[in-house]
Amino acid sequence: MKQYNENILEVKDLETYFFTEEGTSKAVNKVSFSLKKGETLGIVGESGSGKSITSLSLLRLIPSPPGKIVGGNIFFKGEDLLSKTDKQMRSIRGNEISMIFQEPMTSLNPVYSVGEQIAEVIRLHQNLGKKEAWQKAVDMLKLVGIPSPEKRAKQEPHELSGGMRQRVMIAMALACHPEVLIADEPTTALDVTIQAQILELIKNLQKEFGTAVILITHDLGVVYESCDRVAVMYAGKIVEYTTANELFENPKHPYTIGLLNSLPRLDMDQEELTTIPGTVPSPYNMPKGCSFAPRCAYAKKICDEMVPDLQHVDQISQVSCWKHTVQWDREFVLHEKVGVE
């Protein structure tokens, strides 16, 4: 194995496009981020921002056609996953990188017992016999806090509640002690009380196994609770990439600021929640410049014309916004001139 630095996962300029009859949708557009061993990275964004497609791209699980990873690199332990064979990818999926999904109700196969579904992944990657794999599945169910696991293992998904099923999914994902766990909105479909339990469970198991977690969510509360670092996605791009603390203390991208402002607050007496005006642009008809420009209160001419790069604005944060570049003041002058003429 090649040497790699402390980043277990490093994504560089990842591009995943969908080729449909309506046109090409750049669902993931030059996305870069990295993941250190044992840390939790949050990927935040609204529906359609490309966060789920990003996570599926990491395991090369994009439905093709119409989807395709057209560019970039995904370095896992120093090796590019995009140059691996299908066979090599299969030995990584569920073993070194595993994933849990938003819908625990439909993510488990309805016709097999949950024990069998966990044991299957153990047999596949750990070369264990049927009996040992089953025993390990039962142990995993116990580990994720399912009472009377021996009995539960024999049950089928429809006999379990939503929270239970998500615990089963977590047991299945962690059964082979993966180095990276991708959790795609793991709590969205669950009751609020169960949400907290599931997040707590993921956090505890992460500590126990030293797993790095990519937590995909649209819930900033979840980010605040669970993440070390955060990537904010908008229309297929990362617009702000920073630590969780910094995101809440000192947000920089106008979109992030808008998101935080639209959170309900206990310390203020509000009649109505603040919203960001406008809607997300159609993936088939992206603005020429910054994709947030049409909704941005600060937008200037340059924002409509050129796409800003994601770049460091200080030691901690990377932001993709003209407002945080040196061009901004020059642009101001340019605008003025245009105005005069």
Partner: peptide, 24 residues
Amino acid sequence: DYIRTARAKGLKEHVIIYKHGLKN
């Protein structure tokens, strides 16, 4: 979704089709 889960487990395509797909 459970077929996607089966893929995410690293199962071979024919196992996904015949074991997880066909019975359903």
